[in-house]
């Protein structure tokens, strides 16, 4: 049976324990405190979807608040990637509503969705780079489509490639890049234009641990330094450790540093949602998921 966030909030204690965390939250959101943060960036209301008679999503309801990173966990075929495609309007639900920044996009036409998608960034499993054009043109794609002058395009492309640490690869073709580099280019391409909502579709699958770590750091930077709302689909446990356990800050020398949450600070802007056969079987924080007694979740977390 599907559970909604509101129901879970009632059954589970609030994740934040004590005054310190609220202070931490205040400092994280200090720059944007005037914005209406009560409005969810993404909201699913009882979304159903089936393909050829097989249920993919069975009454999915959840919210992603502004500046929040929602990690969607689950085994293969559990409906994780489908959820992301629904947010982007690449698929349409059979029933239920999908609301983005307060606008109900469920019945939007493809032309209307094109405008909504301008506020999104999407990182695909294998990068999904356009392999007939160079890294530069891939990253510049959105700006070229909007007819931005070339010198501005180059500036922005270089800035984004620096963000993912790949400025050297600017003139290469996608076929010349390794798997991890392709995904980082994919991230740079998705982030051009400063999207408000970014979606990661298993961005670390099949990558070596240091590259996977780099990609998680990018997600943390987006969440903590750029105030981006995000959905991070994964089934790798170390991704969750990184994203739920660390935060990014700008150090004294201007460098970005990553620090582990400790006794003084508990990250409240990252939550976990676990799907199984199109239903939500868990929604809460990393601390809560580790304490759960559900045998399926325990097996999923520990591998046995």
């Amino acid at each position: 049976m599907a559970t909604t966030d509101t129901e879970i909030d009632r059954t589970n204690p609030p994740e934040v324990d004590g005054q310190v965390s609220n202070e931490a939250a205040d400092s994280t959101f200090a720059e944007v405190e005037n914005e209406d943060r009560a409005l969810p960036a993404i909201e699913f209301q009882d979304v159903h979807l089936s393909f050829d008679g097989r249920k993919i999503l069975d009454g999915l309801s959840f919210k992603v608040m502004k500046g929040e990173c929602k990690i969607i966990l689950g085994g293969s075929g559990g409906g994780k990637s489908t959820t992301i495609k629904l947010v982007l309007g690449l698929l349409k639900p059979d029933s239920g509503r999908i609301i983005v920044n307060g606008d109900d996009i469920t019945d939007y036409s493809e032309a209307e969705m094109m405008h909504v998608r301008k506020r999104f960034g999407m990182i695909f499993q294998e990068g999904a780079l356009f392999d007939s054009i160079s890294v530069y043109d891939n990253v510049a794609y959105r700006l070229h489509e909007q007819g931005v002058p070339e010198d501005e395009v180059e500036q922005e492309v270089r800035r984004m490639l620096r963000f993912v640490n790949l400025e050297d690869a600017i003139d290469k073709m996608p076929a010349e890049l390794s798997g991890g580099m392709r995904r980082r280019v994919g991230i740079a391409r998705a982030l051009v234009g400063g999207p408000e909502i970014v979606m990661f579709d298993e961005p670390t699958a099949g990558l070596d641990p240091p590259t996977a770590r780099t990609i998680c750091e990018l997600a943390i930077k987006l969440r903590d330094l750029e105030d981006v709302s995000s959905i991070f689909v994964t089934h790798e446990m170390n991704n969750i450790e990184y994203i739920t356990g660390e935060y990014a800050a700008v150090g004294d020398d201007g460098e970005v540093i990553f620090e582990a949450e400790g006794k003084n600070l508990c990250l409240i802007n990252t939550k976990i949602l676990m799907l199984r056969d199109g239903n939500i079987i868990f929604s809460g924080t990393d601390e809560q998921i580790k304490k759960t007694e559900d045998p399926y979740i325990k097996k999923f977390l520990r591998g046995r």
Binding site: L90, M114, M122, F124, A128, Y141, E145, G186
Partner: peptide, 14 residues
Amino acid sequence: VSQQIDAMRALGTD
């Protein structure tokens, strides 16, 4: 199959 069409739509191109 390499999701480039989806990527194109996600980037706002028809």
